[in-house]
Design a protein around this nucleic acid. Structure first.
Length: 340
DNA sequence: TATCCACCGGAAAAGGAGGACT
DNA sequence: AGTCCTCCTTTTCCGGTGGATA
């Protein structure tokens, strides 16, 4: 016995045609002049990527969507751009300027949009070289940047880049409990048998998180476990599972080393309390990695990886520059109490 | 006043994969 | 096939941080 009628709309990457409660943002997006660059900022799970992907579908063919989580250097993004524009794949080994020239050939004759999602991961590695290059072309493409951590691009990039980019900012606020409730109810109506999502269950989820992605993962997990209906008890029962699944989904996109690091923090915070410092994390990470028969990365390298986990909001870190604790950072896991 | 803590984070360098040319 | 180029990933090196302690 299952409560699921049509599992498609429940799946992780499903993009429903209608977006709930993002009317004003959608309007801002559609009404912005097409030569105006945009910077979209908002916490995770507020529908930024979702809305942009729909937008890209609407103006089909004229936009390149690139996630800087996967393509985190200027070079990789240039490769992506060239291969999307020319429809064939580019290997490594080329000169950056050669790729830039190819892109320039396209911009000269074609107006198109470049969407850079998760921009923080590019800025972390390569700074703003790519943004500078794109914005200073003769006939620059329209640039839409999306980030969860950089509210104001001006703080993060060179003044000369900012002045040629000069993006209009579109801010996504966290969903309210009411909105999360509506999203859940809507999704349930499309996927579950009638009346199988209890009102209290949806209310419980909606009062626990403002992150729509997490809320939907939660609903999905509950629906898969449900016999007759998704009840409040069931939703409470699987709370932990749903959250872990949500985390796993993010970690999947990263490397085994990231996962080992995360596990190290998990273990340590279970043993010694929630706050752990970077040194002990590294030691535990080494142990875990060696036990799996792999060579651990250097301390310096994992320091960068920790930063990436932080950017993804999987951990929180507090930096100390000197003082009684020396120069270090204290790390703890982001948990549901943080209302992500 | 010198030294210590504990590790951050920038810079440089090493090693590797792939392309272009001879 | 060999050489030289490119960029990517990772390591190595090291200066720096500011209160606590001797």
């Amino acid at each position: 016995m299952t409560v699921i009628e049509d599992s498609t709309p429940l799946q992780q990457n499903h993009l429903p045609d209608e977006i709930i409660d993002r009317e004003s943002e959608r309007e801002q997006l559609q009404k912005a002049p097409t030569d105006q660059n945009l910077h979209i900022h908002g916490p995770r799970g507020t529908g930024k990527t979702h809305l942009i992907k729909k937008y890209v579908e609407d103006i089909d063919g004229k936009a390149c969507y690139i996630s800087c989580l996967e393509h985190d250097t200027q070079y990789k993004i240039l490769q992506q751009l060239v291969s999307q524009l020319t429809h064939d794949s580019i290997q490594t080994g080329h000169h950056t300027s050669e790729l830039q020239r190819k892109i320039e050939e396209h911009t000269d004759v074609l107006d198109f949009t470049v969407v850079l999602d998760e921009l923080d991961f590019l800025l972390l590695n390569d700074g703003d070289d790519l943004l500078y290059f794109l914005s200073r072309l003769n006939n620059p493409p329209r640039i839409i940047t999306i980030t969860a951590n950089t509210e104001d691009l001006k703080q993060q990039i060179e003044p000369r880049t900012y002045s040629s980019l000069h993006p209009r900012r579109i801010q996504f606020e966290p969903y309210t409990g009411q909105q999360i409730y509506e999203i859940l109810a809507d999704r349930a109506s499309k996927t579950l048998k009638p009346k199988s999502l209890h009102r209290n269950a949806a209310t419980y989820i909606a009062s626990s998180t403002q992150n729509a992605e997490l809320a939907l993962t939660w609903l999905r997990t509950a629906a898969q476990h449900a016999d007759e209906a998704v009840t409040e008890e069931l939703v409470q029962e699987i709370r932990e599972d749903a959250y872990n699944l949500h985390i796993e989904k993010h970690l999947e996109k990263l490397s085994q080393h990231h996962r080992n690091l995360y596990q190290a923090i998990q273990e340590l915070s279970k043993e010694k309390g929630p706050v752990v410092n970077a040194g002990s994390i590294y030691q535990r990470y080494q142990k875990i990695t060696e036990e799996r028969g792999r060579e651990p990365l250097s301390n310096r390298r994992t320091s960068d990886y920790l930063k990436q986990l932080e950017e993804l909001n999987l951990i929180k870190a507090e930096y100390h520059y000197g003082g009684e604790k020396g120069k270090t950072r204290e790390v703890r896991l982001t948990d549901q109490a943080d209302n992500i």
